[in-house]
Design a protein around this nucleic acid. Structure first.
Lengths: 285, 285
DNA sequence: ACAAACTATCGATAAAACCGATGATAACTA
DNA sequence: TAGTTATCATCGGTTTTATCGATAGTTTGT
């Protein structure tokens, strides 16, 4: 015989309050219900849970042990019911967001922490994808949200909002690099030093249109190369401040640092679930 | 409405086997019972768990999420029932053993690990107490077992058995100590060097009956003092091998190292629970 | 000894769990 | 395409369980 959740509630509540009658009041049942429930539980388990020789039932040592485990069961049940409730209220079981390496930011961390707290059962998936790729993932339903560099126009089945935090990209060289000694070098100066650039897609305007360059598929790699003095690179400022403080020096050029607006994009065909809706609002300005 | 354990079993079993009928067979119920149980569960939760468009019901994404949590509940329930079963079979809810500092040993670790595996819910308490103290704790019921140095006779309400592992106590000095250079010093040699001895009780025969000595309440402290070269000490060999390998040197004297038999002691008045019984047998020769 | 506050027990009733039978649907086979 | 099989949903009837109110018995404190 499996004990029902109600029976366990009766048990834990009676143990907590030290009285069957009090437990009955709390649970909105009659006293006899609690009494019988616990008596039957004791019979089913073959264990005396309470010592009734005194007026207020006293937990036996065995009862204390089982109380702890019963609480764990009820805790698990509570989680189950809560996520069921959230699902019934429209929570999508999983949420996929595609980010561009360029536009990650520590600001998102607190937002994600909030998301985790609100929807603990939600499966959250984070993809990396560039420009058109990211949009395609949203269009075909593989992802629900994307954060991309703002574009003048989007396909008609996509909706957009401006993100709360723009990206700040600046030019950096190693502090030990000769270029670091010039306060504000010219474009020509840069042309004589190797550029380190992303090779993920090519529609980005390079400052030195045809210069020699090394490339890497992620900003983290680029930053390491820059630290080692291989050249200069355009990098997200937060990344430099966080992972290479003091090792890189910013270069001041006309038009830099660049402030790039970021768009949150979702499909207007597929309605967002509650978590997606919440996250979109939280990310938008 | 709280879902009953049987309902959850039906859910997890159906999800696992991919068939309500198969789940019914496994659970020993009729197919209609499972079907209705799951249908009701879906109604109660407000969440569609299975996609029935195909012949074999397919878990929805929501169902997958809830399946994981349901499994956790059932797991907790299983633990609950198992410890209830053990308690019903005579498992005592807590077991207290009193050890003497002198007679700890790494051999006990594996035995305790086994105990933990057999009786995961058991509350295990470990006390430290010397000779007569330890016996008193067992007599008054505060502890169920004690491990003490073998005595010729015990109070009539105590029973004993010889423990599996005798204690090996030997004499040690720091490797840097002048005494360490003599292969086998005489008692007189020792008398001129400070003794480090336990101060927990005084009925132990000291080698240098009246010599100068320092004392500490635990072997670990004594060993540290010996390591620092403050004198020589009688220490459990396992402790030196484990915590100060190479730092101390054993001294060979007639009658040393001492091999001390250890007794497992319990009360003949209070019958041991199953865990206590098991532990006693495991500790005895 | 009495009052107050419990718990245990009993009979009745409402709710649910369960079963077997039946019908409907999808997948497989010839 | 038609028939067969395996499966699920539904329904009526039966058994089991949960719950309540009433009542009797205990412990605690006055």
């Amino acid at each position: 015989m499996k004990p029902s959740p109600d029976t366990l509630r009766a048990f834990t509540e009676a143990a907590h309050g030290g009285s069957f009658t009090a437990a009955a009041r709390v649970l909105g049942k009659s006293q006899s219900t609690i009494s019988e429930a616990i008596a039957n539980l004791e019979i089913d388990l073959g264990v005396k849970l309470f010592d009734r020789s005194t007026r207020r039932p006293q937990l036996t040592p065995e009862g204390q042990l089982l109380l702890a485990q019963a609480s764990l069961m009820l805790q698990a049940e509570e989680r189950f019911m809560r996520t069921a409730g959230q699902l019934a209220a429209g929570l999508e079981p999983r949420l996929t967001v595609v980010l561009t390496d360029r536009y990650q930011s520590p600001d998102y961390e607190s937002i994600l922490a909030e998301l985790d707290q609100r929807y603990p059962a939600l499966e959250f998936e984070c993809l990396l994808g560039e420009g058109a790729d990211a949009l395609a993932l949203v269009q075909e339903g593989r992802a629900q949200l994307a954060m991309v560099a703002a574009q003048p126009a989007y396909p008609s089945d996509l909706a957009r909002a401006t993100a709360q935090h723009p990206s700040q990209t600046a030019l950096f060289v190693a502090a030990t690099h000769p270029l670091a000694k010039q306060p504000s070098p010219s474009v020509d100066d840069l042309a004589h030093v190797r550029e380190l650039r992303l090779n993920t897609y090519l529609d980005e305007a390079s400052i030195t249109a045809k210069g020699h360059y090394w490339s890497a598929p992620s900003f983290l790699l680029l930053m390491e190369m820059a630290e080692l003095g291989f050249g200069w690179a355009a990098l997200p400022r937060w990344m430099v401040e966080r992972y290479a403080p003091g090792k890189l020096v910013e270069l001041r050029l006309p038009g830099w640092p660049q402030q790039g607006a970021i768009d949150v994009v979702w499909s207007s065909r597929r309605p967002l679930g509650v978590a997606g809706h919440w996250l979109r609002q939280r990310l938008s300005a």
